[in-house]
């Protein structure tokens, strides 16, 4: 895979309020065109991190760089690349959906009436756009929120808990829509959520945060959109012999199974090795541990806010 300059860089980002550390030295990169999930229990520091990314909160230590521009020193240039919904998409209820969009369009250069119509169509609000927002359902407000975030064709779309309040149909639409955005416009998407199953379906990669610390980053999908099988189990007649043979691959045994971490290429190579060594292979299976299991394992099953 070609290494691209990351669109988003978090460099040792820390947020302290008085002596309380809300976000603790978080560092990660997001390459362009990815859907990156930010996963963690409530109160883990997800929203605080997002608020720092969009300039709503100051950064105590470290820096956030968007498209080469530091949020600290070049806020205007960095913010021009971002479209976001922070928490609920709260719009001006006494204005129509259209006037809300016009309001935000006026705050950014080069957004035509044509573009406003385009995003309205994109989120499917064309029949209700001239009604006041106070008459909208939660799902419609969510879609209007997405529309305002996309007005200026941002390079980075940040969505904080985007599936909140959406019905399964709406979640599905959002997912398909985000995929299309990354594919067709090359938009990078940063979504936060505490819904694990949702993240598994939506994201290429997830960062897991707990108590303000980034505890792991997992690749869920390879570049071509295939889900990566991280571990593969070989069921063999002599597990200890196989394990000895595959020592260099970091194999571990589990009953009559040998578990190896690696991509499909490695799996094929290992199979050849085993067969050559005269070890009988009964089955080769990907170990699909769901993200939820991993998440619970990593966060120690602790899902309460402390």
């Amino acid at each position: 895979m070609m290494q691209q300059e990351p669109l988003v860089r978090l460099l040792g980002v820390t947020k302290k309020i008085s002596s309380k550390v809300l976000v603790d030295n978080v560092t990660f990169d997001i390459p362009p065109g990815q859907i990156f999930g930010f996963l963690g229990p409530n109160g883990a520091g997800k929203t605080t991190t997002i608020r720092m990314m969009v300039g709503l909160m100051s950064i105590t230590e470290g820096d956030i760089v968007i498209g080469g521009y530091s949020i600290r020193s070049h806020y205007e240039q960095a913010a021009a690349l971002i479209g976001a919904i922070v928490e609920n998409p709260e719009m001006y209820k006494y204005l129509s959906g259209y006037n809300n969009l016009k309001h935000f369009a006026r705050m950014m250069p080069g957004i035509s009436e044509e573009r406003i119509r385009e995003v309205v169509e994109l989120v499917g609000l064309e029949h209700r756009i001239h009604d006041k927002v106070q008459t909208y359902s939660l799902g419609m407000r969510q879609r209007l929120g997405v529309a305002q975030a996309l007005l200026h064709r941002p390079k980075l779309l940040i969505l904080d808990e985007p599936t909140n309040g959406l019905d399964p149909q709406g979640i599905r639409e959002l997912r398909d829509y985000l995929r299309r955005l990354t594919r067709e416009e090359g938009t990078t998407v940063f979504v936060s959520s505490h819904l694990l199953s949702e993240m598994e379906l939506m994201c290429d990669r997830v960062g897991i945060i707990r108590h303000g610390r980034l505890i792991d980053i997992r690749q869920l999908r390879s570049a071509d959109g295939q889900r990566t099988a991280e571990e593969t189990a070989f069921t063999v007649h002599d597990a200890s012999a196989a394990a000895a043979l595959l020592q260099s691959f970091g194999a571990k045994t589990e009953g009559n199974r040998v578990i190896v971490r690696g991509n499909p290429e490695t799996v094929a190579d290992i199979n050849a090795l085993l067969v050559e060594a005269g070890i009988r292979v009964f089955a080769i299976q990907p170990v699909t541990e769901s993200l939820e299991d991993q998440f619970l394992e990593m966060t120690g099953g602790d899902r309460h806010v402390e």
């Binding site: 300039g55 913010a79 021009a80 922070v86 709260e90 209820k93 935000f104 705050m107 950014m108």
Partner: peptide, 14 residues
């Protein structure tokens, strides 16, 4: 009060 401040202040403006 309405929470709209968040959408207002994330624009590329001082």
């Amino acid at each position: 009060a309405a929470g709209t401040i968040k959408l207002l202040l994330i624009r590329p403006l001082r």
